[in-house]
Amino acid sequence: MNAALHVLNMQEVERIIRVDHAGELGAINIYRMQIFVARILYKDIVHTLEDMLSHEVTHFNTFNNLLTKRGIRHCHALKLWAFGGATLGFVTALCGRNAIWVCTNSIETTVLHHLDWQLDYLAKHDPEAHEAVLSIKADEEEHQELGQSNGINSPIYKPIFYVVRKSTELAIWLSTKL
Rank of each mutant, 00 (worst) to 15 (best):
L88N: 06
L112I: 00
L49C: 09
T62V: 15
S149E: 12
W117G: 14
E145M: 11
F90E: 01
F161P: 00
Q118L: 05
R32T: 00
C95M: 08
K137L: 06
M33I: 00
P127I: 12
W173D: 13
K69H: 12
R39K: 14
E131S: 15
L174Y: 15
N64F: 12
L5N: 06
H143N: 06
H47W: 11
E140M: 09
E145Q: 13
L80I: 12
F90M: 01
T92R: 04
N153V: 10
D126S: 15
I40L: 07
F161Q: 10
S135C: 11
I172W: 12
L146D: 09
E56M: 07
S135T: 10
A171S: 15
G84M: 02
H6I: 09
I30S: 00
E50D: 15
D126Y: 03
N105C: 04
F60M: 10
D44Q: 07
K79A: 12
E14D: 10
D20P: 05
S54F: 05
N65T: 11
G147F: 01
L25I: 07
V57W: 05
A138Q: 15
G85K: 05
H113M: 05
L170Y: 09
Y157Q: 06
L66H: 15
Y162E: 13
D44C: 06
A22I: 01
E56K: 08
E24G: 06
L134F: 13
K43L: 03
W117F: 11
V91C: 04
M10S: 12
T58Y: 14
D51P: 05
N64R: 14
L8Y: 03
A93R: 02
C95H: 00
H114V: 01
P127D: 12
F60C: 08
